[in-house]
Simulated scan of single mutants.
Amino acid sequence: MRFVAAAMVFVFHVAMQQFFADQGAQQTLLSVFTQAGWTGVGFFFVLSGFVLTWSDRPGRPARRFWRRRFFKIYPNHLVTLVVAFVLLTWAAGVHVDGGHALLNLLLVQSWFPQLEIRASLNGVAWSLSCEMLFYLAFPLLIRPIRAIRPDRLWAWAAGVAVVIFLVPAVSSLLPREPFLPMGTNSSYDFWFIYQFPPVRMLDFVFGMILARIVMTRRRLPLDLGGSVALAVAAYALAPLFPWVYTLTAVMVVPLGLVIAAGAAAARPHPPTSLAGRVAVRLGEISFALYLWHQLVLTYGRQWLGGSQGLSTPVALGVVVLLFALTLALSWMLFTLVERPIMRRFAGPRRDRLAISEQPAAVPAGTAVGAGAGADPARADEGSTPDAPS
């Protein structure tokens, strides 16, 4: 599911970058995939709250949680930030504002309404500003959410969803100008509804509550197939809503139900199509794919002569080539940076020593969970109370 969401964001940026000279093909791409960007990011925010709650263990020190989150996020961000800086200054000859670069380095760029700050360097890293707030707040949020009585969880989830629908009304009080470069919509609306970390934390909290709903075995309104059908229908109908509601509100409940139903369907065994070796590895590299893809698309388009648009067959071939390149870079970042750093630094020293003393192979059929012998690099990444990691 994570890979599908990351691929949706990839295609969204393909549409935004005008690869196609044929305006009919370009407009078709925009009409079909503009919603994909908002949907993919929203999925990740809800999923983040769900997975962290699902894999949380009472009594775990907050500092251990924060250390794991830091080493999960920051090394990948630092690598792609440095690459973005080099490409901007060397390949594009652009002067990089030192203040903007510092805010990006510290992952606080999304707190600022100025578009030139939020989109600086590797523009997609704005979402990590939101994730950093989620992670800092999680040890404080999990206690009251754990205290909600199971029979009241759906009421709380509905309440959070209602607040998300009310956010555009609040944003209407902000200035109407400047407009976004891509249209006549207010830049302040886009920032407040879509990129402002405290507002996007509502998606995260919604995911946390949904995790408790599944963990306490409350009844879900739809199974996985029904939830996916609802999400597809909401995606198709999103253009009928005012633009400010398409950014988060329209899709948040359908996406949350897909995640909840997917987790419930994994008991006792996950669906084969979503849990095969290739599917799992694609999910593992999805974070790296998200960080790489806009850089690859932007500079790949320039270097391959697509600045004025390409014929439709050539444009399709270039997009496939750039997607393959993004996958290769993502695999390298995951294999050479993310996974080794998580194994080396993310867990307590005693856990790392235990891992180093384990046999090289585990007998087939052995379930490895989040307890003794589990890989500390994965214990917070989706291991569940009743399913193998």
Rank of each mutant, 00 (worst) to 15 (best):
Thr384Leu: 06
Pro168Ala: 06
Gln23Lys: 14
Ser120Tyr: 05
Ala377Tyr: 11
Gly49Leu: 02
Ala354Cys: 02
Asp56Cys: 10
Arg57Ala: 11
Gly262Ile: 05
Tyr290Cys: 03
Ser127Lys: 12
Val253Cys: 06
Val170Asp: 00
Val51Ser: 00
Ile213Thr: 08
Leu173Cys: 08
Ser383Asp: 10
Gln23Phe: 04
Asn122Gly: 08
Pro75Arg: 10
Phe134Trp: 02
Val252Gln: 05
Glu357Arg: 15
Asp151Met: 07
Pro181Lys: 12
Val252Arg: 00
Asp380Lys: 03
Arg143His: 15
Val9Tyr: 07
Gly305Leu: 06
Ala231Glu: 06
Phe44Cys: 10
Val362Tyr: 12
Arg212Gly: 12
Pro385Met: 02
Gln302Asn: 02
Arg152Asn: 00
Pro268Phe: 04
Gly306Thr: 14
Pro388Glu: 02
Gly93Leu: 11
Arg118Tyr: 05
Arg219Gly: 03
Ala25Ser: 11
Leu121Gly: 02
Val214Ala: 13
Val4Arg: 01
Trp243Met: 02
Arg343Gly: 14
Phe204Pro: 12
Thr89Gly: 01
Phe165Asn: 09
Met132Ser: 10
Ser307Tyr: 00
Met1Val: 14
Asp380Pro: 00
Ile285Cys: 04
Thr248Met: 06
Ala6Trp: 09
Ser171His: 04
Gly40Thr: 14
Val244Met: 03
Gly306Asn: 04
Leu310Glu: 06
Phe3Pro: 07
Arg339Ile: 00
Arg2Gln: 08
Ser31Asn: 12
Gly262Leu: 14
Phe70Asn: 06
Leu220Arg: 04
Pro197Gln: 11
Ser286Ile: 15
Leu230Trp: 15
Thr89Asn: 03
Leu166Pro: 01
Gly373Asn: 09
Pro359Val: 10
Tyr188Ala: 14
Phe323Cys: 14
Val253Phe: 10
Leu166His: 04
Thr384Pro: 02
Pro313Leu: 10
Leu333Glu: 05
Gly99Cys: 04
His13Arg: 07
Phe43Gln: 06
Trp303Gly: 12
Leu121His: 09
Phe43Tyr: 15
Phe112Leu: 09
Leu304Cys: 09
Ala7Met: 11
Ile193Gln: 01
Arg301Lys: 15
Arg69Ala: 09
Arg301Gly: 09
Ser48Met: 05
Pro181Tyr: 14
Arg146Ala: 14
Glu338Tyr: 12
Val199Thr: 14
Tyr245Ala: 01
Val79Ala: 05
Ser48Thr: 15
Trp54Gly: 05
Trp331Pro: 02
Pro168His: 07
Gly276Leu: 07
Leu329Gln: 03
Ala265Trp: 09
Ala361Ile: 13
Ser273Tyr: 06
Asp386Tyr: 12
Leu316Cys: 13
Phe10Asp: 05
Gln35Asp: 10
